[in-house]
Write a protein that binds this DNA or RNA. Structure first.
Lengths: 113, 113
DNA sequence: CAGTATCCTATGGGATACTG
DNA sequence: CAGTATCCCATAGGATACTG
């Protein structure tokens, strides 16, 4: 067992990143979105960090970037098939936390807003 | 959807940490182990970091610590039930990586040893 | 609008020495 | 053996300004 530790690390690299799951869930919901729209929906993410995480997600083939090269810049992002296949894993992580973490004691994360 | 982001973050906090999954897999395999044994099995982990991650896993109730308070110091660690319940999630993360990441291009993790 | 570049800080983790 | 304490460095991410 435990033969897939490299795969674990590689997968963790992909989903680590303060805003990545929010980006992916947003794209899972709206199908396609733009830089500005993402920044508006994902409150508190800094400009630079959003750009970084979009880059990493794209490099990891979890999202795709479509540049419409018009006069007025227009770029769209959406999930790839690989990205979609990761959603159930993210859901599983959320669900585990929901059932195993005491909501009153969830002090190591920003619990409520 | 995406209502469990706090739970996601909290769970990620728990499984992030360079050696945590190795500690948990080791304990899943041998049931019970000691500080020195863990350090011998988990090559390359530093003394301080192993101590830190054991602490965090214990604080998160994923492992338990049993101090036998004998003359010769003797402490044992093992998975809690909560810790055991996390193993399938870790397996799912490994499996996803195994099926979705190109092994030849797994350059963002230390692929082979 | 969709970025890139620069500067700054907080945190994780390694090396090492010390303690009971 | 099972830790704790100190020092150091690399990286993630925020704030902000600049570019096409």
């Amino acid at each position: 067992m435990a033969k897939y530790l490299n795969e674990f690390d590689a997968t963790m690299q992909m989903i680590q990143g303060k805003w990545k799951i929010m980006i992916m869930y947003e794209l899972a919901e709206v199908e396609t979105s733009r830089f500005g729209a993402l920044q508006r929906h994902i409150q508190d993410v800094s400009h630079k960090t959003l750009a970084n995480q979009l880059h990493e997600l794209e490099d990891d083939n979890l999202i795709s970037r479509h540049d419409f090269k018009t006069a007025e810049p227009h770029v769209e992002y959406r999930l790839t098939e690989t990205g979609k296949s990761l959603i159930p894993i993210l859901d599983a992580i959320c669900d585990w936390g929901d059932t195993h973490i005491d909501h009153n004691l969830m002090d190591r994360s920003l619990c409520d807003e």
